[in-house]
């Protein structure tokens, strides 16, 4: 499994994550051509605390931030 990394341009707030997986869906669709959450470059762990991680393949394209409507992913510097 790919190593994780910390993106410079995205701030996460797992407390706000609802587990909607929109981030994984848009990431996998855009970068692999298929809706495929487990192959996305962002990982959401649906076990209890909805931990958020990025894999080193993440290009910081920002799409996941755009599709997260729950405030769990925000651009650095613009977080609430």
């Amino acid at each position: 499994m790919a190593e994780t990394m910390v993106p410079q341009s995205i701030v996460t707030d797992p407390e706000k994550c609802a587990g909607c997986l929109s981030c994984q869906l848009i990431c996998s669709y855009t970068h692999t051509g298929r809706f495929n959450p487990l192959c996305a470059y962002i990982r959401i762990n649906l076990r209890d605390d909805y931990r958020i991680e990025f894999t080193e393949e993440c290009t910081e394209c920002g799409l996941c931030v755009e599709y997260c409507t729950y405030g769990a992913l925000q651009p650095t510097g613009e977080e609430e």
């Binding site: 609802a18 909607c20 959450p37």
Partner: peptide, 14 residues
């Protein structure tokens, strides 16, 4: 404490 959503849903009524 917060919302829970089904996958692929932007409403999150749970």
């Amino acid at each position: 404490k917060g919302s829970t959503s089904c996958p692929g849903c932007s409403l999150g009524c749970k």
